[in-house]
Design a protein around this nucleic acid. Structure first.
Length: 561
DNA sequence: TTAGGGTTAG
């Protein structure tokens, strides 16, 4: 940088024969400066009499290589105002990248309009940048519109669109587009595969994930660090932890994300000691843990009931100078709450140096409910309602607290308040992959084409379950209605629909794998145990938090969840 | 000089 300063000074103090050679020399300095000190490069840009668009682009790119900053947008606005130099496709690609990184939706929309007005809207790079910008802003349909309007689609465009669907959890759309891509004759590469594998991980679609793994091998697609990590994650999220470890062990190079995937995988499977063993091995391999690694370690301790160990990792994390994030605090609160230390958890929360987020308060309320500390739970839950008056979860939590205390009057009042404010609960949704398609079931769902068969089968299953001596845990149902109706409501739970569909559509030896968006209720947990015994089926349920593997009437979580 | 990728508490 010092040499660049000297050259800059030399140019300024030595007169040049022409303006263009002066501009050229300064632009050269700017080019080098953009890599070392982009703010200096920006100042230089403003000193150049008639900078070319290349100089602007260089400074924009310099900013993109640093931490996210709106500077490229400011530069673009300046360009638009001055009308000179004119933006080119590179400028638009850079500014759109900036808009997708921040993200800055309104600004990106303006850039889109500008792209069309300036006649650059049909350029492949600009379109792909736009498509990526929209999907990063979670406006997938707008991204899809750009994609559909493209006259030419290469592997980058297809991958961007598939990745866009995968990120927002539109798994079937991502997989469908992957199939269309193959039909169109564009060959997928490593990046495409990462997006599709991630979609399978989200959906818990193990068979498809396995097929993709074979596809990678068959097509000779390079299993680089990202692909391998995506595979480890996919197998772990699909409940096939052994295979996840096989892929992980075979990786020639493992970075912090790869180690974290494996550690988190063990944590959600309930194998806390394996997760901690992995963390120790990571240290031996001299790979620096990142904040996600520690989330994995702390959540492993929480799910394994390892309070002392969790505290130890927490202290060592602080000793290493790692700044705890809200997630880390959340893990610690969860650790204490799961170990029935609600009072200690409360003390921990109130002593936090940052204001706890609603999720942390909710963890506390659940813990107070479990410990039958209803007054304390009510106090925190009411605060939560003030903090987040539009979040249905808080109302559900408070009403479930009242239900546990059999306070039906207060429970009804909360439900009424919810109705009056027009707040709708997020419905339970469970999915199961059958023959390459992910079937979704929402609580009380009748929209599935085979709904009638499923319903008939559910009746048969419920009769068998009840005949085996299962006593329904009615408090799982929040409505203050008669017991018969409560019982019916329990059999409407989405995971039961998905399990019934799995029993109907798969052979006896096939493991039934369900993914649920919420936590499994106590009664469904008991019922699934019973079904696994009565139907001699292994059933694996991934709920919002972790895995439950039901075999012959026993769950892998040992009822600690 | 430009576009697409892997891990994240409850």
């Amino acid at each position: 940088m010092r040499v660049l300063n000297q050259i800059h000074a030399h140019i300024l103090t030595h007169p040049r024969p022409s303006l263009s050679s002066y501009t050229f020399s300064l632009s050269k300095v700017l080019c080098f400066a953009a890599y070392r000190n982009v703010h200096y490069a920006k100042q230089l840009l403003f000193q150049i009499p008639c900078p070319k668009i290349f100089a602007y682009n260089t400074v924009m790119r310099g900013f993109l290589q640093q931490n996210p900053s709106p500077e490229p947008i400011f530069l673009f606005k300046r360009l638009v105002q001055m009308k000179f130099p004119r933006s080119n496709t590179f400028t638009l690609a850079f500014v759109l990248k900036c808009c997708s990184m921040l993200p800055a939706f309104a600004e990106g929309r303006q850039v889109h309009k500008h792209a069309i007005a300036s006649g650059l809207g049909g350029n492949l790079f600009v379109q792909t940048s736009l498509l990526n910008f929209y999907t990063k802003c979670e406006e997938v349909e707008l991204g899809r519109k750009v994609f559909d309007e493209m006259s030419e689609r290469n592997v980058v465009a297809w991958s961007a669109m598939i990745g866009g669907y995968a990120r927002v959890g539109k798994v079937n759309e991502a997989l469908e587009l992957f199939r269309e891509m193959q039909k169109s004759g564009v060959e997928p590469d490593e990046v495409t595969m990462v997006s599709v594998i991630s979609a399978c991980a989200m959906a818990g679609a193990l068979d498809l994930g396995k097929w993709l793994h074979m596809f990678i091998d068959r097509k000779g697609i390079k299993s680089d660090l990202e692909v391998s990590t995506a595979l480890v994650n996919m197998y772990a999220k699909c409940g096939f932890i052994e295979k996840a470890q096989d892929v992980f062990d075979a990786m020639p190079v493992k970075d912090a994300k790869a180690w974290s995937s494996m550690i988190v995988g063990f944590a959600i499977t309930g194998l806390a000691n394996k997760a901690l063993e992995m963390f120790a091995r990571m240290g031996e391999a001299q790979v620096e843990p990142n904040h996600v690694t520690l989330i994995g370690v702390l959540s492993a301790c929480a799910h394994g009931g390892l309070v002392a160990e969790g505290r130890k990792y927490w202290s060592s994390m602080l000793d290493c100078g790692m700044e705890p994030s809200m997630e880390h605090y959340g893990c610690m609160v969860d650790l204490l709450c799961r170990a029935n230390q609600a009072e200690e958890a409360y003390e921990f929360v109130v002593s936090m140096p940052v204001f706890p987020n609603p999720a942390i308060w909710r963890t506390l309320v659940v813990s107070f409910k479990k410990s039958k500390m209803f007054d304390k739970g009510e106090e925190v839950a009411k605060q939560l309602l003030q903090l987040e008056p539009l979040n249905a979860e808080n109302y559900i939590l408070l009403s479930s607290l009242y239900a546990s205390a059999s306070d039906w009057v207060k429970m009804s009042a909360v439900r009424r308040q919810m109705r009056e404010r027009g707040i709708k609960a997020v419905p339970g949704c469970s999915s199961i992959e059958i023959n390459g398609h992910v079937h979704e079931f929402v609580m009380g769902d009748t929209s599935h084409p085979e709904a009638k068969d499923i319903r008939e089968f559910i009746c048969e299953v419920s009769e068998r379950v009840e005949a085996s001596g299962h006593e329904p845990w009615i408090a799982s149902v929040l409505q203050n209605v008669g017991n018969g109706e409560k019982l019916d409501a329990l059999w409407e739970h989405s995971e039961r629909l998905a399990i019934a569909y799995g029993l109907l559509k798969t052979k006896e030896y096939v493991t039934i794998r369900i993914v649920k968006n919420l936590r499994v209720c106590e009664d469904c947990h008991e019922v699934t145990k019973t079904i696994s015994r009565l139907y001699n089926r292994e059933i694996i349920v991934r709920d919002r938090i972790r895995f439950h593997k039901f075999v012959n009437g026993v769950c892998s979580c040992q009822d600690f969840w």
